[in-house]
Design a protein around this nucleic acid. Structure first.
Lengths: 194, 194
DNA sequence: GTCTATAGGCGGATAGAC
DNA sequence: GTCTATCCGCCTATAGAC
């Protein structure tokens, strides 16, 4: 947002592009498609963005930066490991609900980043996953968690929150807060009675 | 396979196409790319397949047919609900390990099916999800499972097995059987100690 | 800063020789 | 059944008028 609260043309382009990339994929979306949503000709967009690649780059790294900074905050808070995992799950769900199209693009279309930036992105993701897995392993070592395989636990959690985009429609039967609680119950307590 | 055990050219094309669609997406893969992997010119492939659309159609519906027929088998077996859910999770993981590229394509690129077939596919998936969710709801009613939201439980399970494609390399630290057991433990027992 | 026009390349698919 | 040659459309991006 600018000072007067009005989004810039650039921000509008990035937002509409994220929606289209989510629905039709990066390769399936043309600059003409984006221009149509924004309300200008494709050529005019080049006054606000450098290239189609740059749009994708901006979306992907904006999201990965949010993930990483939130992880660093949570790591430093004085919480039990169970509470830290819960906080991370809530962060994923909130980001998905608030910024869904961009999160979807960062999850699916990152592979179309130009080679040079692709390395940066996968490296950032690897660091995030490593930090998350370390929290799980520490929770196991502390006796809070069952002795599961921490890699399997990590990806089970990450996968579960990833697919919210595919079926969650906010304001239907479930609110975002109820969704958080249900997913956390399922992942931390399990399906079966003991 | 044909009678003499040799795959037909058509089967080779479908298989190579699935690998490329998985790696580069449907829109990111050209007929020339597929032809390059198969070892012929793009034009020659049209003696074996009708169009690029038809390749995608074949991959997607082959996979959805397998899911649906396995669900029907499991529904009829005399097992506890816990065992039925375990059997479904194992089926998903085995299919992912044995036929990974095709499963990935059916999971991600189904949306590029031509409109007429897209309805058939989403309808098939909806039926599968409904049958799976009914087993979870029945397990809750029978007192086997905790009173979770069955839709959330369904998608948590489906999501967890979906992302195996992204990180599981068979024959590294984990075998497919170990992976099955770890995922089932995580989903049915939960992460946290009680 | 927006437009029209267009360059230059790659896409799926077909025609027709062999 | 495989090839070469090619059609024609859509793609990203740029040039230049206004």
């Amino acid at each position: 947002m600018t000072k007067n609260g009005k989004p810039t043309k650039r921000q509008i382009i990035l937002e509409e592009a994220a929606k289209l990339f989510k629905d039709k994929g990066y390769g399936g979306t043309s600059m003409r498609d984006i221009a149509g949503q924004v309300g200008m000709e494709a050529a005019s967009m080049y006054n606000h963005i450098k290239s189609k690649d740059e749009i994708l780059d901006n979306i992907c790294f904006r999201i990965s930066d949010v993930y990483i900074s939130h992880l660093q905050e949570i790591e430093q808070q004085p919480l039990s490991f169970g509470e830290k995992i819960r906080a991370l799950i809530r962060m994923h769900i909130q980001l998905m609900v608030e910024d869904g199209p961009a999160v979807s693009v960062a999850n699916h279309d990152w592979k179309y980043l130009p080679a040079a930036r692709l390395n940066d992105f996968t490296e950032a993701r690897r660091r995030y996953e490593k930090g998350f897995a370390a929290l799980i392993a520490a929770g196991i070592a502390a006796g809070e968690f069952q002795p599961v395989n921490s890699t399997v636990a990590l990806f089970t959690i990450l996968s579960s929150v990833r697919w919210i985009e595919l079926w969650f429609k906010p304001g239907r039967s479930l609110s975002a807060e109820e969704l958080e609680e249900h997913i956390i119950t399922m992942l931390l307590n399990g399906l079966e009675k003991k």
